[in-house]
Design a protein around this nucleic acid. Sequence first.
DNA 1: TGACGTCAAGATCCG
DNA 2: CGGATCTTGACGTCA
Length: 418
Amino acid sequence: MAIGFACLVIGDINTSLSHCRLKNAGQNNLRKIAFANLSALEAMVDYNIKQGISLFRISSDIIPFASHPEMEFDWQHEFGQLFDRIGRKIKSAGLRVSMHPGQYTVLNSPRPGIAEKAAADLQYHAAFLDSLSAGRESKIILHIGGVYDDKNKAAASFIENFNRLPLPIQSRLVIENDDKNYSAEDVLEISQVTGIPMVFDNLHHLLNPSRNNLSQFEWIELCSATWKAADGKPKIHYSQAKDGGSRGAHSNTINAREFVEFYNGLPDKTIDIMLEVKDKNLSAIKCMNAVNPGLPVGQLEEEWARYKYLVLSRSASIHNEISDMLKNKPIIDTAAFYEMIDRAGEPTEDHDAQVYAAQKVWGYLKGSCSESKKKRFHKLLKQYSEGTIRIHTMKKHLFKCAAEQNNQYIVKSYYFYF
DNA sequence: TGACGTCAAGATCCG
DNA sequence: CGGATCTTGACGTCA
C-alpha cells in the first residue's frame, strides 16, 4: 500500500512552480519556466524519497502551455538530461508517479476542435511520463467529460475517441468517476467495454452516487478488478469534503480519525491511495503514520518538531497534551497523536496563543538578528496585539529571520504555512 | 453570462 | 520603494 499526494510540496525549499500568461508565452520565457519547474520537480522527488513517500502526482503545469500552439521548442529533447536524472531517481526509489489533466481536458466533446485539443493534451502527458522513462504503471487519470443531453451517446463518443488515440497513450489512461456527470456505475461500464482501468473517487461517489446500493468498499473491489498486472497496483482517490465549502471542495487537511476508519474498512490494504487535499504532503505523512502503529517514536518526534509551533499558536493546552504524550510513553498511539493535531487545526482565533507562539519562535532567532529585525519584530508584535495587522505578517517576518540565519529547525516548521 | 478550481502573476493600494 | 492585498488568467461545461 502507498499513500500519496498531488502536485506540490508544502514546507520545503525550491519546490514551488512558476507560471506565465499566454501573452508572455514567448519561447525564451517558456524555456525558463519549464527548466525552473523541472528543477522544482526534482526537489519534490527528492523530498518524497527522503520522507519515504512512494506515490506522487506530477502537476500538469510543469511544462507551461505544453500542448498549446504557442509551444514551439522541443522540450523533451532540450531537457533530456534533466528528465533522465529525475527519471532515474524515481525508478531507483520505487516512486510511482502519475498525472491528471484538469476538468478542461474533454475527450468526448462534440464541439469542433475540443476533442482534438484533449488528444493533444493527453499526448503531452504521455510524452512527459515517457521522458522520465516511467513504466506503464505510471498512469494518466482522466474524467469521461460532458453529457450533452445524451449520456449514452456522449459515452460512445468517449470510447470512439479513446480508440483513435495511439496505443502507447491508451495504455497509460485510467478513468475516474466525477462529482456530477459520470457516476462509478457509468464509468465502470465504460471501463468494461474498453478495458481501461478505473480509479474510484470516494468524494465524487458521495456527491454523485450510483443507482444500486453497493458500499464504497464494494465499489473499490469492483474497480480494483479492472486493473491488469501490467497496470500496477489498483489505485483510488481519497478526499474529505471541506466544512462549509462549496460542492465537492476538498478539505484543508485529512481528518486522521475519519481516514483510519476508512482504511480499516478497506477490503484490500495493498491498493494505492492518492489523497486530494489542500495540505498535500502533510496529510500524506499524517495518513501513513496514523495507520502505522509500529512507527518508531523518533519519526513521530520529527513530525512534532514541525507541528509544534503551529499547535502552540492555536492552543496551549493541546500543545501540552501532545508534549506529555510523547514524553511519557514508550509506545505512541499514532492515530491519537494526529487526532490531537487535527483538534488544534479546527478554526478558532486564540489571540493570546498566537502571541505566545510568535514569542517562542522569536526566542530561537533573537540572538542572531540585526537590530532592525529586532525592532521590526517588536513593532509587529505590538501591532498584532492592537489588532491592526494579521498574524500572517508576523510569520513572514519570523520566517525571513530564520531563513537568513539558516535555522533549519525553525525554517522547517509548518507554523509558517497556515 | 457567471460559477466552477487553482495558485501564481500581475495590478493596485498603503505607509 | 517595499510590502500587503486584491484581481486576473486559462481551460470547457452547465445552469
